[in-house]
Each structure stands twice: as structure tokens, then as C-alpha cells.
Design a binder for these strands. Structure first.
Lengths: 334, 334
DNA sequence: TTGCACAATGGCAACGTTAACATTTGGGTG
DNA sequence: CACCCAAATGTTAACGTTGCCATTGTGCAA
């Protein structure tokens, strides 16, 4: 068992290279006021000793960590992977790192996320909200800690960013109406989902804006099984020629449910989903759906903290619209 | 615009509470050698000033960051979310944080992951390997930086952990043979996938161990579409009564492809997948598959670094077996 | 020769925390 | 009443880095 290697500091490098600590530091930062030959000598010493700058010392001196904290109440969740891709990409761009933390959801409060982060080496934090935190209205971000919430709700003290779920429903409903359908049925999701509720509002209000009274919705639970049941239930409704499901799994389940009752998609009924998550999993159906750019959402959040151009200072609220992707599950009935 | 708030240090708290800095520090760590009333006074001062311990100062003093770095060449990927869940859970358990970094895969080397991490405040690092890094054989971890690779390959200097893909195939093949099938056909995946290749080896060698010469495999690309094509191709082969697909999407595609040629599952052909990823997405089929516990893999990796019981010191290699989950897509033909 | 600008480098202090050691206080024991 | 022990608190120094200012060296114009 080898002896524990004490970490190598600028001092050690300086001694070996025969220069001052300051010159080593300048070399690390590639300052133009160090002679090339001196730099090379210092670099050689760094290589020989295996010098790595100490993050703690540096941060202490600078008062910055160059790190963004991400707090999640639940790691698993649609789009989280893409969002992380965005976090990582934006962080990378600014020379930042990402620190990930799972926050216990009992209680489900922004305060618990915030206090969890407060002891970590981060300059700002992002909180991914799936549900409504108990203290959403009263929460104050830690002083000096820029806080961005990933949610559609606007917060007076924190910047927010998310996909525009309302607009998503508007796009879908207007698309279906544009194809000649008289109304659009809706397969909903559990009521605790913020984004799901916003989709529901978008569906309802867009129909009303077109002078159509929304039909009775069918509540699902995100699973294909619940979509299947919904499809069977809607198959017997003669007014139902277009169905909008809160996610792709339910949309696909719905298609199968309709087929089990002898209804064909898109000949008899048009079906649209949300998420574009079926791509490589289902072989025989190109579902018409809405694609969100979660990576962009993640990037915006980190850009906001790491101070990119294009995102201003101060509290800001951003919603990114999804893109409707036409597949083979909608028919023009005009 | 308010003036920038200088950060509050132990010194400020000490002054306000009328005690020494050391007593403040002791209070923060809830040392038993501080009188309760003193503690309360210090706590009150901390609250009043909004004191938060500075991570950099602490780390500098302690020489530890209590943070594990995770390097990924690609954030998106089957099981990554579950692995992260495991990283976060284990880190939490030990009072550690997770720092996530996306590493550019050009070139795809462990060295690039390692040097990326070297400037970050981490005590150890985990690298998620999807492909074979060019420098796998020659790589040396940074001195003092415990490095764990998530891969099935064993490395002489780094601990490794992953799902046992070989055993996965063994289980599937022996299960199908046990159901009376004379041989097992295989739908493979792109050759650059390490885990996919290991599955292929497992399939081949297990058949041979049972005295069966493996039939020609069909190469897929992970997508349901390729599984569909494979299913159609295999539908005409009279010797094909059991198919093992490298993932669930291809297995599901395969089932649909078989059906398109008039073959029914499981009546005519049995099909098994891997990953247990179809659960809530496909309504009408309970696929027989293998479930991996990626969360456990993630936890093991972080435990190894954060020094949990159950994981020893030094280089260690761990493979976790998957669990075969019986669905409705396999028939007993004995 | 002197003075001066400028390039290259060095010395020092401070960032916030805490381990190790030092000191004070109060209470009990001989 | 001197003594000692333990509890409670204080003092000092060091972790590694870098901003600021001081110093040295070099070439060139006056």
C-alpha cells in the first residue's frame, strides 16, 4: 500500500521550476506577461509533479464556484434526460459544472430544495418542479443565489422556464379543427401534474375560443393501458372523430383500444399525442404528436445563471413552444 | 439595484454572538462541548445574518470535497436515468453531492474524461462507458482520484461495475430451452455497443454449451423498425420457434413483424426482449423480458467512492445479474 | 550618463474554515 | 484552602490560490 500522496500545490511547482508561486499561477492562466521559455519550464515542472489546480483554493480566492446546482424532486421523469443534456451543454459552454441533487419531496417545498443547495459549492440553482410546491407563493431565493425554476408558473422572485403546454394544446386543437373535425376529445392525466393540467386548460379554452363546448374528458394515468380503456370508451361515441391524448403512450394505447372495437386510425378517428416518445419503440405507427425541445429548456436555465448573452439579468419568464409533428394518425375530413 | 452582499463568514457570526470563531464552527457541527445556551445564541446570530458555511473554505481546510464526479460521453442512453437515480441516492446517503459532466467523445478516451474531471471539486469519479475507449488498456486514473468505470470489462487499475449482460443471455436462452425450444434465434444490435456484444456472446456460448450450433443472427439497430423487419425475415424460417431480441423495442417490433406474416406470438413463436422498458407504453402485450437494476449499479459506483460498508477498498469488479420477468410472449412447447 | 518606460517576476496578504493546542472557569476532593 | 480535573471557550496557523503592489532587469531616447 503506497503512502498517501499529498496534493501538489503551486508552491511545489514553483520550487521545482525555480520561480515564484505567482509565476506559476500566471502560467496556469496563460498570462502574456510570462516569458515563453519560463512558461515552458513551469509547465514541465507541473507535468513532472502531476500538478492539478485545487478547486477549493481557487474558489475561495475568487468567491465563485463556476457550478450550477440542479435540484430534482424526482430524477425519473419524461424529458429529464433531455433537460440534463441541456444543462450539461450550457454549463460546458460557459466552463461551468453541474451539481445534481435529489431532494426529498416530503414536504414538497422550494425551501427544502433551497436549503439542500445552500451548503453546496454552487453559484446558482435550478429547481425542476413537477408538482405545485406548498410554498410556491411565499418562497424567497437565498440571497446571492440566482434561482431558476423549471415550471410554467411565473414566480415573482425567480426566473422560470418551461415548455409551453397551453400553446401545445392550442396547436393540436386548432390543427384538428383545421382538418375539419367538429370537436376534439381529450384524454387527460392525473390532476397533480402541473404540465398536464395546463394541457387540459389549453384544450378546453381553445375549443371555447372557437365556440365549441368541450366534451366530457376521459381521465387517464399516463399509461398505455389507460389509453386503451379510453379508446374503447370513446369508440362508441359517434361524435368522436378526433382524440387528443396527454401523452404518446396513452395515444398509442388509445389507437389499440379503438382498433379492438373495430374503429380504425386514421380512417374512422384521428389521434394526436404529446412528447414524441414513441419513435423507435413502436414499429407500425407514425403518431402525430408534439415535440418539445427539453434540451433548450435546460440550456436556457443554465444560461440564465452562467450569464449568457440572450438572457438578460433580473427575473425573466420563458416558455418555449413545441412543434407539431405530422404522422399518419390524422385524417383530413373536410 | 442593491449593492452586492458580501458573504457572511464565521467571523461575522462570532462578532455578533460575542463568541470566538471556533465556537461558531463547533456550533455548526453541533459539538457537545458547547453549552446549549451558547449554541442558541450563535444560532440566533447565524439566522440574523443569514450565515451559510462556505464550501470552498471548508473543502480547502479538510482536503475533501464530499463530491463524486460523473462523466458521461452521452447523457441520453438506456438506463442512464436510473443510474443517476442510484448515484444521487448513494451520494445522499453519504452526505455527498454529484457533479455531472458531459465529455466530448472525440476522441472517445478515458483520458479525456479524466482530465475533464481533474479541475473539478471531486474526490472520485465515475465514468459511464458505452463504447470501447481507445485508451482502455493503457489508462491510469489520476493519483488520489478513485475512479470507477461503469462497464462489463475489467480494468486492472479501476474498479468496474455493470449489469451482467452475459448472464442475461444465459438466463434467456436456458429459459427458452427449458420451455422445450430446440434453438433460439437472436436479433442483435450495432457492433459498437459493448453491452450488446456481450449479450451476443452470451447467447452464442450458452447455445454451444448446450450442444446447439447458433443459427444465423439478424442484425438490428435497436429500433422497433429493425425488429419488425427481423420478425418478417424470421417468419418464414420453420426452425424458428423462439426469438431473443437485444432490446424490448426490437422484440416488440419483431412481434408485429411476425404478425404481419400471419405468425402469432406466443402460439407460433416465442419472443423475449431485454430492458423491461415497454411497461407503460404498449397496451396489449406483456413482453417476457429481463429487468436490470441500474439504480443499484449507480449506487454501487458511488458507494465505492464514498466508502460504504459492503464495498471494500482497492480495485473491485462487480456484475449484477438481471431478473427474467415472465410475460405472455413465451409458450411452453414441451 | 541619466532618466524613463516597459517587460518580467517576486512578496505579501487574504479568501473562510477548522484541527490542534492553549486558556479560563467552576466544582469537587483531600 | 490548595489542588486537580473537566467543561467550556479562545488563539493560532494552515489549507491553495491569486490580486495587488513592489522590485528587478533591459533597451532606448534625451
Amino acid at each position: 500500500m503506497a503512502a498517501v500522496k499529498k496534493s501538489v500545490s503551486v508552491k511545489d511547482v514553483a520550487r521545482l521550476a525555480g520561480v515564484s508561486e505567482q509565476t506559476v499561477s500566471r502560467t496556469v492562466h496563460d498570462s502574456p506577461s510570462v516569458r515563453p521559455e519560463t512558461k515552458e519550464r513551469v509547465r514541465a515542472a507541473m507535468r513532472e509533479l502531476g500538478y492539478r489546480p485545487n478547486f477549493a483554493g481557487r474558489s475561495l480566492r475568487r468567491g465563485k464556484f463556476k457550478t450550477v446546482g440542479v435540484a430534482m424532486f424526482s430524477i425519473t421523469g419524461t424529458g429529464n434526460l433531455d433537460r440534463m443534456e441541456g444543462f450539461a451543454a450550457a454549463a460546458d459552454k460557459h466552463g461551468y459544472a453541474i451539481t445534481l441533487t435529489k431532494v426529498d419531496g416530503h414536504p414538497y417545498t422550494l425551501e427544502s430544495a433551497s436549503s439542500r443547495m445552500s451548503a453546496l459549492p454552487v453559484d446558482g440553482m435550478v429547481v425542476i418542479m413537477n408538482r405545485m410546491p406548498a410554498d410556491f407563493g411565499t418562497f424567497e431565493p437565498l440571497p446571492g443565489m440566482q434561482t431558476v425554476l423549471v415550471t410554467m408558473l411565473e414566480h415573482p422572485l425567480c426566473s422560470t422556464v418551461d415548455n409551453d403546454q397551453f400553446d401545445c394544446s392550442r396547436q393540436v386543437v386548432e390543427y384538428l379543427l383545421g382538418q375539419g373535425h367538429k370537436t376534439v376529445h381529450f384524454i387527460s392525466c392525473p390532476e397533480r401534474s402541473l404540465s398536464g393540467m395546463r394541457r387540459e386548460e389549453g384544450w378546453r379554452e381553445t375549443l371555447r375560443a372557437h365556440g365549441i363546448e368541450p366534451p366530457q374528458l376521459v381521465r387517464g394515468d399516463w399509461t398505455a393501458q389507460s389509453g386503451y380503456a379510453a379508446g374503447q370508451a370513446l369508440a362508441d361515441d359517434p361524435t368522436c372523430t378526433a382524440i387528443y391524448a396527454s401523452n404518446d403512450a396513452m395515444a398509442y394505447g388509445c389507437i389499440r383500444g379503438l382498433e379492438s372495437r373495430g374503429k380504425h386510425v386514421p380512417e374512422d378517428v384521428s389521434v394526436v399525442g404529446v412528447d414524441d416518445s414513441l419513435g423507435d419503440i413502436v414499429p407500425d405507427c407514425r403518431l402525430t404528436t408534439v415535440r418539445f425541445d427539453n434540451k433548450r429548456v435546460g440550456m436556457w436555465a443554465v444560461d440564465k445563471i452562467a450569464g449568457a448573452e440572450g438572457v438578460g439579468p433580473g427575473v425573466e419568464h420563458m416558455l418555449f413552444p413545441g412543434v407539431l409533428v405530422e404522422g399518419d394518425t390524422v385524417r383530413d375530413v373536410r
